[in-house]
């Protein structure tokens, strides 16, 4: 049996000229800039809506989980475990391709992606809120109760507003994850940034659209990553 290397290298292709023509052909990008830009806006809109809806659902889940009622905390725990413990790719494929089996047909790819990303993000946001809420000194709850507020009132007016400030950096990081995770929605055919780039790549036989898509992702993710880091540092200084 002849030995074969798992990777073949053809030096005749490895040249600066090929790198320039295959990866950095600006003409290909500018000719198709409209479709890339539109796909980028879909990506950002999808992540933004999923973040907002995920925060709402995640906060509900976090409050259910930290409460003393088992009837509320057990389902929240199961939900969080399932959505954090399975790949987002399975969740998306299931939501789009498997729900028609039981009569639920999602017509809009954007909506299917939004549901999947929201449900997934909510599980992570719930954990972010839970740790945020539990990081607030226990004495505040006791003080609130002692001054005549109910558990719910203390949560709403004292604990959650303070927790919100502390969870802004991790929620920003979650938004960065969401931006990148929108690319997984391309698997069901939504023409977000990645799919748009791949369609252009296959149409032009040139890889520059993929490089352009990566630059778009960087352009929105990097500022947010540094913003989250900065916020975290400020928060640490203040609470230290």
């Amino acid at each position: 049996m002849p030995f074969e290397w798992p990777v073949e290298f053809d030096p005749s292709f490895f040249s600066l000229q090929n790198i320039r023509e295959s990866y950095l052909d600006l003409g290909v990008v500018f000719q198709n800039f409209d479709s890339l830009l539109q796909a980028f806006l879909i990506t950002v809109l999808l992540a933004l809506l999923a973040e907002i809806l995920g925060i709402v659902l995640g906060l509900v889940l976090a409050l259910m989980k930290i409460g003393r009622s088992k009837i509320l905390s057990a389902p929240a725990q199961v939900y969080i475990d399932v959505f954090r413990g399975t790949p987002l790719l399975i969740q998306i494929i299931f939501i789009y391709f498997a729900t028609p089996n039981i009569g639920i047909r999602i017509e809009s790819l954007f909506f299917a992606g939004l549901i999947a990303l929201t449900l997934n993000s909510a599980a992570y946001v719930a954990e972010i809120f839970r740790s945020g809420i539990q990081s607030i000194d226990r004495g505040q709850m006791e003080a609130g109760r002692a001054s005549g507020l109910t558990y719910a009132q203390t949560m709403r007016h004292i604990i959650v507003p303070q927790a919100f400030r502390r969870v802004i950096p991790p929620l920003t990081n979650e938004f960065v994850m969401l931006i990148k995770d929108t690319s997984i929605v391309s698997v069901i055919g939504l023409e977000e940034l990645l799919r748009s780039a791949r369609v252009l790549q296959s149409a032009t036989a040139n890889s520059t659209p993929l490089v352009a898509a990566a630059v778009f992702y960087l352009a929105i993710c990097l500022p947010l990553i540094y913003l989250a880091n900065g916020l975290e540092r400020r928060l640490n200084r203040r609470t230290a």
């Binding site: 789009y96 391709f97 028609p100 047909r105 055919g189 369609v199």
Partner: peptide, 18 residues
């Protein structure tokens, strides 16, 4: 014109009426 990664995915979407 909707692109799928594999033809099986496209068949599934057609059978689902999507």
């Amino acid at each position: 014109v909707r692109t799928f990664d594999t033809i099986e995915d496209a068949f599934a979407a057609l059978n689902n009426g999507q």
